[in-house]
Nucleic acid binder design. Structure first.
Lengths: 135, 135
DNA sequence: ACATAGCCGACTTATTAAGTAGGAAATAGG
DNA sequence: CCTATTTCCTACTTAATAAGTCGGCTATGT
């Protein structure tokens, strides 16, 4: 029972959009100096091209990446890979779910989720893309 | 940015079904000896009655709770609240998502999720409903 | 017998995620 | 200045999953 549980994870779910965002940023972190066209990222990571456009736009608006149009254009990191954490990217891409209610005797459950989330946050704000690329 | 992140959590998402299941079991753990009718649980926790039936059935089939039909019937825990963990309930109710692919340079990201899930599992298999009720 | 309560599969609806469309606006090279 | 390239942008469609509903059957205590 708990074996299956360990294998898959129950609460930690990462949306495709978030995964794509993280993988795209990782590509940029791994690339040599200069703009990387969306097409290249899409091919390297197997991300639907149009969808990727959409995500990159969001990341640029949030100030995590920069861009240049036209031939020889593309995207690059707005700051050093060592200064961008996983949490930075996730915070941009994910929506913010509103906290749930736990009536009566079930109220302590909320504390458990809070603990899980706190741990999650600590981990994700510690890990930078410089680290990801160097692993 | 990270403040908002902390407040809401990004990956830790709990489905309504799972929440209801946990809250229902908590009610049973908190109740005195004897069967508790679904109606009572639904009222105490604000869970849609028909939906709850559905969930309780699943928990019973999994052997976590027992039941008795007819007047004075209801549900109760199959074993002591100290011997049922949050993970036990979640394992019954949640489906098992298949692990994702992380091509090329993005591969190390998978290790991060693995770490998150491992922590999640440890926490959830440690906490019993006896503890929840006593908090 | 009758009222209470669980049992059960299938069905519908709501919500969110995932992906698409169609073009406009830059920009480098010839 | 013309053309190919590539980003920019809003809105839309489709797919998937979660949430909740329905109708009726079965067991049981009084």
């Amino acid at each position: 029972m708990t074996t299956l549980f360990a294998a898959a994870g129950a609460f930690v779910r990462i949306s495709a959009r978030t995964q794509y965002a993280l993988r795209a940023v990782t590509e940029l972190a791994a690339a040599p100096e200069g703009p990387v066209p969306a097409e290249r990222i899409a091919a390297a990571q197997g991300i639907p091209r149009r969808f990727l456009d959409n995500i990159l736009l969001q990341l640029r608006r949030a100030g995590l990446i920069r861009s240049q149009r036209g031939p020889e254009g593309g995207y690059w990191l707005a700051r050093d890979a060592a200064a961008i954490t996983l949490a930075d990217v996730i915070a941009v891409v994910e929506g913010w779910p509103s906290p749930d209610e736990y009536p009566g005797v079930a109220e302590p459950l909320a504390d458990v989720w809070a603990a899980l989330r706190e741990h999650e946050e600590r981990l994700l704000t510690e890990i930078t893309f410089a680290q990801i690329v160097s692993l």
